[in-house]
Design a protein around this nucleic acid. Structure first.
Lengths: 218, 218
DNA sequence: CGAAGGAGCCGTACAAAGTACGAGCCCGCG
DNA sequence: CGCGGGCTCGTACTTTGTACGGCTCCTTCG
């Protein structure tokens, strides 16, 4: 099929789009920058993809494919903790992907595979269909929402957030938002704090809650 | 200050932007459509706002201001349930807002007020600073993530999702994703199902988990 | 009451981005 | 060796954000 060397393909287009978004941000991902990344003229891309929307769909699905799938039949808490951690890591590697999720209705094959496998893992652990739906809704909401918050953090985790705080927490602000200021100064701004740690705390809280549900088999 | 009648103001600009986004979607919110909504020439807007980014910042803050604040000193579970429900409802009214959250680093005054009040409510209920941070991280992640998922649903909740399902769940798909198909057919596609119900379930699970934390005073 | 000044508004124009259209090129097959 | 068609490209049109400078009308002060 590949007539000439290094022929363009849909996967190569998607991969290049991901690379550009990772490197320069989602807004920098234009048909022209993408073509440049591929070493090709802008219009060449359109023979492998109908439009930019399709590229974004493909990119989201590619991101999903990076998430490690749970082992069906393994301990569900272990597997789900692993999957959630992997999802968070992937979404941290591609922060722009979270914003894309919201606008994409049609899931791709990797996304469907992901969900199917997760459902299988829950069912194998004795969760009822209904419980599985509940469990996935909570966990996925938490993971996505956490990713949204991480993406909107103005610093790159444990970077000099003092500077950032200084910009926001001036004297007047501190007076108007005393509780926010307290939280920031006595906790968030302490050395060693990492918002990322909240992920494990929250996830454990949710997994504990799910563990408490009455279940058929263990 | 308002020299002529119906003078443009920053709040009016933000409100009009919100209206356009609600009515026609975020992509339809352009400087030109916004100006048209205001009955004004495109460039007129720039005398009240430095650029489009500032409008989006303002819109996000305006959305936050719509969320009902918790009553500091009230029962924290009741208050937080109410706040979360309000937040979800607001984000359902403005589905495009979720995607904006991710790209906006600088919080506006309404956003700061919101967070400050929530912190105050937790602290008043006996949560330590650290526990408050944990609690907010879980709850907010859940709420945002749930909103993301709701926004990406291809149907308007309890609309004819049979049609949508028919499009996705053809014979081949059903074979490749058996667990997904099972979940869909025996639960999601049953009459009376609403993804929104998962919100209350998940929220209760989280609030239960928070309730189990050792706390100073009630 | 009139002139000055500035605030608010607008018309024009340009750069960047998505993409339609049709021509050119190059490969494998006959 | 020639041909057909898939891949690529150049050009150009539309839409969007926004810089620049002019116009207009209210407010203020003499």
């Amino acid at each position: 099929m590949a007539r000439r060397r290094d022929a363009l393909t849909r996967p190569r287009v998607i991969a290049a789009a991901t690379a550009v978004a990772d490197r320069d941000g989602l807004t920098a991902l234009t048909m022209r920058s993408l073509a440049s990344e591929l070493g090709v003229a802008p219009m060449a891309v359109y023979h492998h993809v109908p439009n930019k929307e399709a590229i974004l769909d493909g990119v989201v699905d590619a991101v999903f494919s990076e998430i490690t799938l749970p082992d069906v039949g393994g301990d569900w808490r272990t597997e789900m903790r692993m999957r959630a951690a992997s999802a968070r890591e992937v979404l941290r590697r591609h922060p722009w992907a979270v914003g894309l999720l919201e606008s994409r209705a049609a899931p791709g094959p990797a996304t469907l595979t992901h969900h199917d496998t997760v459902i299988a893992a829950f069912r194998a652990a004795g969760f009822s269909v209904r419980q599985t739906a509940h469990a996935m809704a909570v966990i996925d909401s938490f993971v996505y929402g956490f990713a949204v918050q991480e993406a909107s953090l103005p610093f790159d985790d444990s970077e000099s957030l003092d500077e950032v705080a200084d910009g926001i927490l001036d004297a007047e602000t501190a007076e108007r938002f005393p509780h926010l200021t307290e939280l920031a100064t006595v906790y968030v701004l302490e050395p060693g704090y990492s918002f990322g740690d909240e992920f494990d705390l929250g996830l454990d809280l949710i997994l504990d809650g799910l563990d408490r549900l009455p279940r058929a088999a263990g």
